[in-house]
Simulated scan of single mutants.
Amino acid sequence: MEIRQLQYFLVLCKELHFSEAAFKIGISQPTLSQQIRVLEDELEVPLFDRMGKKIAKTEAGEVLESYALQVVQQLSNAKKAIGDLNNLHTGSLRIAVLPSDLDYRLTEILIDFRKDFPNTKVQVFPTIESLTRVLDNDVDIGIGLKTEVDSRIERIPFYTETYSLFVNETHEFAQKKSVISGELSEIPLVMYPQGKCGRDLIDKWCVKQGVTIDSVMETGSATSLFQLVREDIGSTIQPSQLIENFHSLGIRSIPIESAPTRELEIFYRNDRYLSKAAEAFIKLMIEKF
């Protein structure tokens, strides 16, 4: 049994179609069929049920897939560990992060990281599905809201922050030292659309507080929300620290009593090798936040 055969097998498990799997691998369909047949002959069991052009994994195929994933992952881990041992600081680092507001605070970290790892290619993917991207091995590190316990995931809590009300400096609330939840239902708000992490967090908080907020305009960009506040279209509820990034826009930040709170975590798969670059990035995240 060869590593190459296991890699072919895993692609076929994902595609469940010989032609499409062969195309993704870059080999001919007969070659792929032959390699899978070699595996089946060696194991003395069929790995797939052939149903015309469609196929399905057999019970033996399911078992082999779980072990093959571990073998391929461990091989990848070994290559990365040896690369780190050589201290080449090459390769790539893929990061999934909550979009919009966290983008502003990542820039400084990315600049500092680049100084220490100039040969490492960094890719940042804004997404509300950070955990899923990590579990699917699409990225090396995820940054997002606190997640449920998962035996496959290593979780590092690194930051907790409250939300504040942001209003135009001419707003009637601009001179208030704080607001209560009931006052939020009295003013027009510009917010993220429902389904966004930040919006869902606030909506759940509103239910607990027994209040309903009025969203007059919705956009998925923190920049555009603050521009709308600047033009006095409405006020917005955002993480308190964001005022540092928008202090010149003529906007006031007002604390909310018993405010919504979010807990942020860094997470990665515990069965994957964590490179020196990834470790350094996590350390920078913790230090900067």
Rank of each mutant, 00 (worst) to 15 (best):
H247V: 07
D49P: 00
E42A: 08
Q7N: 10
L32P: 10
R133H: 06
A22K: 09
D112E: 05
Q123W: 13
K57G: 01
S258T: 05
V139A: 04
D116A: 08
E265S: 08
L225G: 02
I202K: 04
L225P: 01
Q7Y: 12
K276R: 14
V211L: 05
L201C: 06
Y273H: 06
K54C: 04
L274M: 11
V63Y: 07
I25M: 02
E129N: 11
S221I: 07
Q35H: 13
T219A: 04
S224P: 00
K53D: 11
P193K: 01
I213N: 03
F226A: 05
G91Y: 07
C197M: 07
S164V: 06
L284W: 02
N270A: 00
R4L: 15
A22M: 05
P239S: 07
S253I: 01
Q5I: 02
V72L: 12
P188I: 08
E265G: 07
K53W: 11
G195P: 07
T170W: 09
G198D: 05
M1S: 13
N77A: 09
P193W: 08
S28P: 04
L249H: 08
V97G: 00
E154Q: 14
Q5S: 14
E15R: 12
I256G: 05
A278M: 05
Q73C: 01
